[in-house]
């Protein structure tokens, strides 16, 4: 896990890329003037706001991050079709349940991304991270944490935990190297 960037003038590369594209999308143009303005905004805003933001871990393997993004997008589409079938089918057959997934990640930023992907993919909504403590925000504290998940149709608990850990958590661990 690395918190500091290589260049001092670029404290948050992902935020800069996001600001650049959001400015171009909001103006709906790629003219030279707007590109210059977007580059200026993308450099100045992270610099000006970095003193009061907590340091977040950087993406160390960008290629893997992009591949993981497309995997998650594909999963969102298939998962939505599954959930639509479950909703339209008979309600009495559904077996909902709460399960706890043990987490290997320690920092709050990767855990947030994991919780969001779990919320958007097959029949699961993440509810809480247990146990909660203040040291969690800095990524300190050594006790084992759990992600509490509500499942719409729980068939095989262990298989679901294994899927979440292998498909979504392992790539995140590699991307952030933590």
């Amino acid at each position: 896990m690395r918190l500091e960037t290589r260049f001092k003038w670029l404290p948050a590369p992902i935020l800069s890329i996001l600001l650049f594209f959001v400015w171009l999308l909001l103006n709906n143009s790629v003219s030279a003037g707007h590109i210059v303005l977007a580059v200026i905004l993308a450099i100045v805003i992270p610099l000006a706001t970095s003193p009061f933001r907590t340091k977040q871990p950087l993406i160390i393997k960008p290629g893997l991050a992009i591949r993981h993004l497309f995997l998650v997008l594909y999963d969102i589409i298939t998962a939505n079709v599954q959930v639509a079938i479950l909703i339209l089918g008979p309600t009495k057959k559904l077996t909902p349940g709460f399960i706890k997934v043990p987490l290997d990640l320690t920092h709050s930023m990767p855990i947030t991304i994991l919780a969001s992907t779990v919320s958007l993919t097959p029949g699961t909504v993440s509810a809480e991270v247990l146990p909660w403590s203040e040291s969690f925000i800095e990524g300190e504290g050594s006790e084992q944490r759990f992600l509490l998940i509500h499942v719409l149709d729980l068939k095989d608990e262990q298989a679901l935990i294994d899927t979440i850990k292998q498909r979504y958590e392992a790539p995140l661990k590699e991307i952030f190297q933590c």
Partner: peptide, 19 residues
Amino acid sequence: VKMPDFFMRLHGPTKATTL
């Protein structure tokens, strides 16, 4: 509308509506 309790109702709007 259809699901019997709150936790199951949450699944419809978060996933299907977003897609």
